[in-house]
Protein backbone atom coordinates (compact mmCIF):
# COMPACT_ATOMS: atom_id res chain seq x y z
CA UNK A 1 0.00 0.00 0.00
CA UNK A 2 2.90 2.34 -0.62
CA UNK A 3 0.74 4.12 -3.17
CA UNK A 4 -1.74 5.10 -0.48
CA UNK A 5 -1.10 8.62 0.54
CA UNK A 6 -2.33 10.72 3.43
CA UNK A 7 -3.15 14.37 3.16
CA UNK A 8 -1.95 16.76 5.81
CA UNK A 9 -5.36 17.10 7.43
CA UNK A 10 -5.96 13.36 7.19
CA UNK A 11 -2.68 12.73 8.98
CA UNK A 12 -3.60 15.22 11.68
CA UNK A 13 -7.00 13.60 12.26
CA UNK A 14 -5.48 10.13 12.22
CA UNK A 15 -2.95 11.22 14.85
CA UNK A 16 -5.73 12.66 17.00
CA UNK A 17 -7.63 9.38 16.80
CA UNK A 18 -4.47 7.68 18.03
CA UNK A 19 -4.08 10.15 20.87
CA UNK A 20 -7.67 10.16 22.06
CA UNK A 21 -7.99 6.40 22.21
CA UNK A 22 -11.48 5.50 23.45
CA UNK A 23 -12.68 9.08 23.43
CA UNK A 24 -12.10 9.69 19.71
CA UNK A 25 -15.30 11.00 18.17
CA UNK A 26 -16.09 14.01 15.97
CA UNK A 27 -16.41 16.81 18.51
CA UNK A 28 -13.58 15.57 20.70
CA UNK A 29 -11.25 15.60 17.71
CA UNK A 30 -12.25 19.15 16.80
CA UNK A 31 -11.54 20.27 20.34
CA UNK A 32 -8.29 18.30 20.56
CA UNK A 33 -7.01 19.86 17.37
CA UNK A 34 -7.85 23.29 18.72
CA UNK A 35 -6.18 22.60 22.03
CA UNK A 36 -3.02 20.95 20.81
CA UNK A 37 -2.36 22.62 17.46
CA UNK A 38 -4.38 25.79 17.95
CA UNK A 39 -6.19 25.31 14.71
CA UNK A 40 -9.91 25.87 14.09
CA UNK A 41 -11.36 22.98 12.21
CA UNK A 42 -14.82 22.33 10.95
CA UNK A 43 -16.95 19.55 12.36
CA UNK A 44 -18.23 18.44 8.98
CA UNK A 45 -14.73 18.41 7.52
CA UNK A 46 -13.55 16.24 10.39
CA UNK A 47 -16.43 13.83 9.87
CA UNK A 48 -15.78 13.52 6.18
CA UNK A 49 -12.08 12.91 6.85
CA UNK A 50 -12.90 10.26 9.43
CA UNK A 51 -15.11 8.41 6.95
CA UNK A 52 -12.42 8.62 4.30
CA UNK A 53 -9.83 7.21 6.70
CA UNK A 54 -12.26 4.46 7.58
CA UNK A 55 -12.70 3.66 3.87
CA UNK A 56 -8.93 3.41 3.55
CA UNK A 57 -8.79 1.07 6.51
CA UNK A 58 -6.67 3.22 8.82
CA UNK A 59 -9.36 3.50 11.48
CA UNK A 60 -12.45 1.60 12.43
CA UNK A 61 -15.54 2.70 14.29
CA UNK A 62 -18.24 1.48 16.60
CA UNK A 63 -21.13 3.14 18.38
CA UNK A 64 -20.48 4.14 21.97
CA UNK A 65 -22.90 3.89 24.88
CA UNK A 66 -25.82 6.28 25.35
CA UNK A 67 -25.35 9.27 27.67
CA UNK A 68 -27.59 11.95 29.01
CA UNK A 69 -25.69 14.70 27.28
CA UNK A 70 -26.04 15.52 23.57
CA UNK A 71 -29.75 14.81 23.57
CA UNK A 72 -29.16 11.17 24.32
CA UNK A 73 -27.47 10.54 20.99
CA UNK A 74 -24.75 7.93 20.94
CA UNK A 75 -21.21 8.74 19.89
CA UNK A 76 -19.39 7.04 17.05
CA UNK A 77 -16.04 6.13 18.56
CA UNK A 78 -13.10 5.70 16.18
CA UNK A 79 -10.03 3.61 16.91
CA UNK A 80 -6.83 3.46 14.97
CA UNK A 81 -6.03 0.18 13.21
CA UNK A 82 -2.63 -1.46 12.83
CA UNK A 83 -2.52 -0.28 9.25
CA UNK A 84 -3.19 3.25 10.43
CA UNK A 85 -0.51 3.06 13.06
CA UNK A 86 2.12 1.74 10.66
CA UNK A 87 1.13 4.39 8.14
CA UNK A 88 1.69 7.10 10.75
CA UNK A 89 4.96 5.54 11.71
CA UNK A 90 6.11 5.28 8.11
CA UNK A 91 5.26 8.88 7.46
CA UNK A 92 7.04 10.04 10.55
CA UNK A 93 10.17 8.08 9.64
CA UNK A 94 10.15 9.32 6.09
CA UNK A 95 9.93 12.84 7.37
CA UNK A 96 12.73 12.31 9.89
CA UNK A 97 14.94 10.89 7.17
CA UNK A 98 14.33 13.95 5.08
CA UNK A 99 14.82 16.25 8.04
CA UNK A 100 18.24 14.78 8.67
CA UNK A 101 19.30 15.69 5.16
CA UNK A 102 18.76 19.40 5.74
CA UNK A 103 22.16 21.03 6.51
CA UNK A 104 21.93 22.23 10.09
CA UNK A 105 23.40 25.63 9.41
CA UNK A 106 22.78 26.91 12.91
CA UNK A 107 25.10 24.44 14.55
CA UNK A 108 27.79 24.08 11.97
CA UNK A 109 28.01 27.72 11.05
CA UNK A 110 29.06 30.51 13.39
Amino acid sequence: MSKEYLGEFEELVLTMVGILQDEAYGNAIVNEIKERVGRESNLSAVHVTLYRLEDKGFIKSKMGGATNARGGRRKRIFTITNAGLSMLKAMKEARMDLWKLIPQLKFSGS
Binding site: G26, V30, L43, M63, R70, G71, R73, R74
Partner: peptide
Protein backbone atom coordinates in the same frame (compact mmCIF):
# COMPACT_ATOMS: atom_id res chain seq x y z
CA UNK B 1 -26.05 4.89 9.72
CA UNK B 2 -24.27 8.20 10.12
CA UNK B 3 -27.25 10.18 11.32
CA UNK B 4 -27.15 9.50 15.03
CA UNK B 5 -23.51 10.27 15.63
CA UNK B 6 -23.53 13.38 13.47
CA UNK B 7 -26.61 14.75 15.15
CA UNK B 8 -25.06 13.96 18.52
CA UNK B 9 -21.89 15.83 17.66
CA UNK B 10 -23.89 18.79 16.41
CA UNK B 11 -26.01 18.88 19.56
CA UNK B 12 -22.91 18.73 21.71
CA UNK B 13 -21.43 21.65 19.85
Amino acid sequence: DLYESIEGDLLEE
